[in-house]
Design a protein around this nucleic acid. Structure first.
Lengths: 126, 126
DNA sequence: CGGCATCCGCTACGATACTG
DNA sequence: CAGTATCGTAGCGGATGCCG
């Protein structure tokens, strides 16, 4: 149960860090994105769409997101059981943030170039 | 030397993940924020302002940010040595993103409430 | 199906030194 | 001052197995 404990907050003096820790902890972005893109869906569907995630981690992150109020979990007591996940109202309010993020992607190749430059210069020095 | 290796990207199918990994890896937010708030400054100044960060980790993150082209490092060969860091043009282009992030902070207490609700319900069940 | 329990490797992080 | 070197550790994430 020690797996969901939060690290000793390194943020003070930076007002955006709490939001970052909340929204951008590992795997939450693909999960929220998938829920946003494909709407309400079952556990296995999420698992298949995100592909490289393991069920254990998917469960952990979904629990966290549910606790934080970003995702709504609905349990249907049937045989076999059916569980559905969807983005909450609060989660949907992140949409503009994701949009801004997506827009910034155009700069990714600038980053690529910066890295290439940096690595080239390093190679000269040794 | 294995400390700066990136984890096996878990993102596919989510277009914003690359940006998230780049900008929101641990400590980068406080660093970028501090550089943005106080402008060009020396290593010790950053160290003091972020407070809970260790010089080792600060160095690691600054190197990464420099390599990614988000931060510019200037070395002055004096005695004692003087090194200054500042946000690059590319780094500055993240400003709207940080602004959106800061705006979303108003929802943090909604998250607090969601957590309290969730925890209360859990306590009932056991 | 949708988990939870358990074991386990790995590594990023932190603390504490020590240099040019 | 601006880092590096070394060591120890916690916790994430993967793998496996079991259950209602």
């Amino acid at each position: 149960m020690t797996e969901n404990t939060v690290k000793p907050a390194p943020e003070q003096a930076c007002p955006v860090s709490p939001v970052v820790d909340l929204v951008f902890s590992r795997w939450t972005t693909p999960i929220l994105w998938t829920l946003h893109e494909y709407g309400r869906q079952r556990f296995v569907e999420l698992e298949r769409r995100i592909a490289s995630i393991t069920p254990k981690v998917l469960t952990q992150r979904l629990r966290q997101l549910e606790r934080d109020g970003l995702v709504v979990r609905t349990y249907h007591a049937e045989v076999p059981p059916r569980v559905e996940y969807e983005i909450s109202e609060l989660g949907r309010s992140l949409a503009p943030l994701f949009a801004t993020l997506a827009e910034w992607s155009v700069n990714l190749d600038a980053v690529e170039r910066a890295r290439a430059d940096y690595d080239a210069k390093q190679r000269v020095r040794r």
